[in-house]
Design a protein around this nucleic acid. Structure first.
Lengths: 255, 255
DNA sequence: GAATAATATTTCTTATATGGAAATATTATA
DNA sequence: TATAATATTTCCATATAAGAAATATTATTC
């Protein structure tokens, strides 16, 4: 129950730099100096000076001809290293590929960071509709299948802490926003061994999630996701069957 | 021939932060405060303060229990955005997958940035030996098949500029380190339509590279790479045949 | 389990980097 | 060619940063 006291953060330039990087990252197009400085409470000269250093560092890529700025390839490079640092990705790959082939739907791998699910790997089926999910992107524990699968394993104490620090905001009409109801749902998940996201996290998408927990160590979770219209009783049963098999196989393979 | 005059860079904290990120990125293991501060000319308190801000920004991930620091998942997330921003990746994917299947070897896609090749995509064959290459990693123009394929298209003027600013360092015994010889090699590449890296860029690896240039616009290049022992006359001819076909197909598909 | 060593963290003060208004240069547009 | 819009540079009052030293917290040794 540690109250986080507001500490003044060091490194004003760093914080400003992060703002600039975020603005540029959020844009799908390269931006000009004006476009950037208009979106942040920083004067144009300062923005320019920071951008130059960011370019020098490789965080930002400059198109000198068009005078526009875009994210640098260092994110690509270091992103690969981050992915590689989670060896759960490498060790689950073959299992999840098989699951993808068995279900013909998209299979996701997530880890927990800061009480959120970070999408670490995604195996798309050839016929998959493009989902609104990106490797490295994050989602709520309470609204996603992977998150709920893991939440279900929390000690009552930890779950209370999580709930106390989290407001259950609705992402779709189906999102569970009542803590009581969520706890009931988690009980069911414990019993059944899998979690269902019944269009609770993003429109039209139905997921089944499975935790990857062994000896009280949370390795992460995986899920099968499909557009709701493709999931009927038959298909759903397949998800459960192959998902549980996969979970068992992965856990057995983890030292 | 613009001489770059040494400009003092703005943002000392930013430059220090980059050093810390690099130190952490270069390490395969999470590092402690001491391990980090020992590798940079910055005092421990300052390192700590910068790390905290980096953690706040998401660039660094802290393991509070072990008091260690590692790269943050923001690199994963933004790395995906960088990759997505190069639509050459999406538009060449199917062609390069086919090429991978035809040759049964690893196929690489690169772009040019700052007179270096940046590896943007890599399609590994099931039987591929793990190569020393990472998405986001860079290589020389002069020693790589993709780089030479592009260099061969340079105007004499631009080539001279490149050579004037680049020292041809040997990466293997086969690397071409003589500018005259390199220029001869580039002439051959122009004539044949493909570039060969005969173990010039990394030990044991043989590559054939093809430019992706249309209407004087350099989209990038792709290459087929294989351990040298697997490449005989027959196999090599296949690389050329399928590679040239793939190049033509990609260029035709590019608007 | 106490003593010691090693590392992490906080405090505080001077020197330094910073921010942005205003001036100027450079493009784009009419 | 004139005008508007954006990019870039200059400069200095002021906020920020750096690190020595003190302190706290771990880890290690006996």
């Amino acid at each position: 129950m540690s109250e986080t006291i507001e500490q003044p953060l060091y490194g004003t330039v760093l914080l400003k730099a992060k703002q600039l990087i975020d603005v540029i990252a959020k844009s799908s197009e390269p931006l000009t100096l004006k476009q950037i400085s208009d979106q942040v409470p920083i004067s144009k000269p300062t923005v320019l000076k920071i951008l130059r250093t960011l370019i020098y560092c490789g965080f930002i890529r400059e198109n000198a001809a068009r005078k526009t700025y875009d994210l640098g390839t260092i994110f690509l490079e270091y992103g690969q290293r981050v992915a590689a640092s989670f060896d759960i990705k490498a060790s689950t790959r073959p299992f999840l590929e098989q699951l993808r082939d068995e279900t013909n739907e998209t299979v996701n791998l997530g880890i927990v960071e800061d009480h959120r699910i970070v999408l670490l790997d995604k195996l798309e089926s050839p016929r998959s509709v493009k989902l609104v999910s990106r490797i490295g992107g994050t989602m709520n524990m309470y609204s996603s299948a992977m998150g709920k699968a893991i939440l279900a394993s929390y000690e009552p104490q930890d779950l209370q802490t999580y709930l106390a620090h989290t407001s259950l905001k609705a992402l779709t009409p189906n999102t569970i926003t009542d803590p009581e109801q969520l706890q009931l749902n988690l009980k069911t998940i414990q019993k059944k061994g899998y979690a269902i996201d019944n269009i609770e996290n993003q429109p039209d998408i139905f997921c089944v999630g499975f935790d990857l927990i062994k000896h009280h160590h949370v390795y992460g979770a995986f899920s099968i996701s499909a557009p709701e219209y493709r999931v009927n009783e038959q298909v759903f049963k397949g998800f459960i069957k192959y998902g549980l098999q996969t979970r068992q196989a992965i856990l057995a393979s983890l030292s």
